[in-house]
Amino acid sequence: MLAKDAKIVLTGAAGLVGQNLIVELKAQGFTHIVGIDKHEYNLGILRELNPDVEIVCADLAERGAWENSFDGAACIVQLHAQITGKHADLFVRNNIAATKNVLAAAQKNTVPYLVHISSSVVNSVADDDYTHTKRAQEKLVVESGLPHCILRPTLMFGWFDPKHLGWLSRFMAKTPVFPIPGDGRYMRQPLYERDFCRCIVRCMQDQPVGGVYDICGDTRIDYIDIIRTIKRVKRLRTLIVPIPYALFRLLLRTYSIFSAKPPFTADQLKALTAGDEFHGIDTAQIFGVEQTPFEAAIRESYTDPRYSKVVLKR
């Protein structure tokens, strides 16, 4: 069992999972948390919300003094990832090069355990830079020889979300008309971030060696019904309008020309409509985590007075 004062290092700590995981770790009484990230704005949010957390601003794709933060660590949670981007080299740099450096630093400092956060896309039919590099990242972890487990979450939502359902929620609140690609009948298995973080903490405590866990949201729900749930919970009057898939894709491609970081890309649209169905573990049986009902999780994510209005930058 991991001691409450054990040193825990999170890479990619200022991102969506990291911010939520720190909230959960502190709620469970952990006191020695080190967060490493390169995103200065998001680190500012982390500092403001959690002044007791040790912060290291560093680019993991470059060797440096950040490696000393692993000295004495009881556990590393590897969260850093390039999820969206317009160029393949970004994914290679942040999903592969950075991971090689983290694993080397963990080996050098004889860190006893690592929890690697992968993605359900490794089991997906998707064919894109994110999927390719996440598969390669997993391979690096397995071949490192470090005691580890791997968690593969599906699409996540929750506090601090700058994209995905968080972006859709904010966009819906600002526009009188909300476009849906095609008929919107694309099955999703969204995973509530806080439920996922509870699974991570359980892995940190139990330290299963070599375990690989596919973690899905318990609820199977069509994309259009996700949008309707957000609209209902936030009491919005937005009109939901289906538009032809080809037109929707064209609009996304046009928008990406003018935006360096489009919130929703043509590749993500393709993944949305790919027809993937993921079969995950029973989180209650394996980790003792009963998943929050979908509508209750949406309500907590987007109406909670503490964190619902805090949004990270991409």
Rank of each mutant, 00 (worst) to 15 (best):
C149Q: 03
C149Y: 00
I150L: 14
L151H: 05
R152A: 02
P153Y: 05
P153V: 07
T154R: 02
L155C: 10
L155H: 08
L155Y: 10
L155W: 07
M156W: 04
F157W: 11
F157R: 03
F157T: 03
G158T: 04
G158A: 04
F160E: 00
F160W: 10
D161A: 13
D161E: 15
P162M: 08
P162V: 07
P162R: 09
K163E: 11
H164W: 04
L165D: 01
G166K: 04
G166Y: 00
W167S: 03
W167I: 06
W167G: 02
L168G: 01
L168F: 14
L168C: 10
R170I: 04
R170W: 04
R170Q: 12
M172V: 13
M172K: 03
K174D: 13
K174L: 14
K174M: 12
K174G: 08
T175P: 00
P176Q: 07
P176Y: 05
P176V: 09
F178D: 01
F178P: 02
F178H: 05
P179V: 06
P179T: 08
I180D: 03
P181V: 11
P181I: 08
P181A: 06
D183C: 12
G184Q: 10
R185V: 08
Y186T: 08
Y186E: 10
M187P: 03
M187Y: 11
M187D: 10
R188N: 13
Q189N: 09
P190K: 02
P190Y: 01
P190F: 05
L191H: 00
E193C: 15
D195T: 11
D195E: 10
D195M: 09
F196L: 12
R198D: 01
R198I: 06
